[in-house]
């Protein structure tokens, strides 16, 4: 299950690919929605670790427009519920993630991303 919380942490690490290598772009993503327990404290704590623009852009690409472009100053329950859904309930089960810089494709199969590189691609 590649959830957007995890996607927000993965970057391309191919040889020489050090700039504009995040966020990876989903391709042919097949999505499943799975309910998760809502935990506002966890979300509040996690906010500072997120790359907000990457999260919002990716959610929009996957068809979810519930998050504002700028992280709001007032964190209310409605915002946290939307954030909860985007971060934790959207699961990309199949497809690939493409590096916006070098074009490297990382496949996702059965919800597990394969981030390995071939020998000659390792930096």
């Amino acid at each position: 299950m590649v959830r957007l919380i995890t996607h927000n942490i993965l970057a391309c690490h191919a040889k020489g690919c050090t700039q504009n290598n995040f966020p990876l772009q989903f391709k042919d993503a097949s999505i499943e929605l799975k309910e998760q327990e809502f935990n506002p404290d966890f979300l509040r704590n996690f906010l500072s670790r997120l790359e907000w623009k990457a999260l919002v852009d990716t959610a929009r690409e996957l068809g979810d427009t519930s998050l504002p472009l700028e992280m709001p100053e007032m964190i209310d329950d409605e915002f946290l519920k939307n954030l909860h859904h985007v971060l934790l309930e959207i699961h990309v089960e199949e497809g690939a993630m493409i590096c916006p810089n070098c074009g490297h494709s990382y496949p996702i199969s059965n919800g597990i991303p394969n981030m390995l590189l071939a020998e000659h691609e390792i930096g």
Binding site: R3, N8, I9, L10, C12, F22, Y106, N110, I112, N114
Partner: peptide, 29 residues
């Protein structure tokens, strides 16, 4: 990675398995 995912499900813990060499794709973030 697949066993890790299944064991997470079996024990109701949402683990995110990633096929990777140590921490390579996670390091920068």
């Amino acid at each position: 990675a697949s066993c890790t995912a299944r064991t997470g499900r079996q024990n109701n813990i949402p683990i995110e398995p990633i096929i990777a060499n140590l921490v390579a794709p996670l390091r920068s973030r």
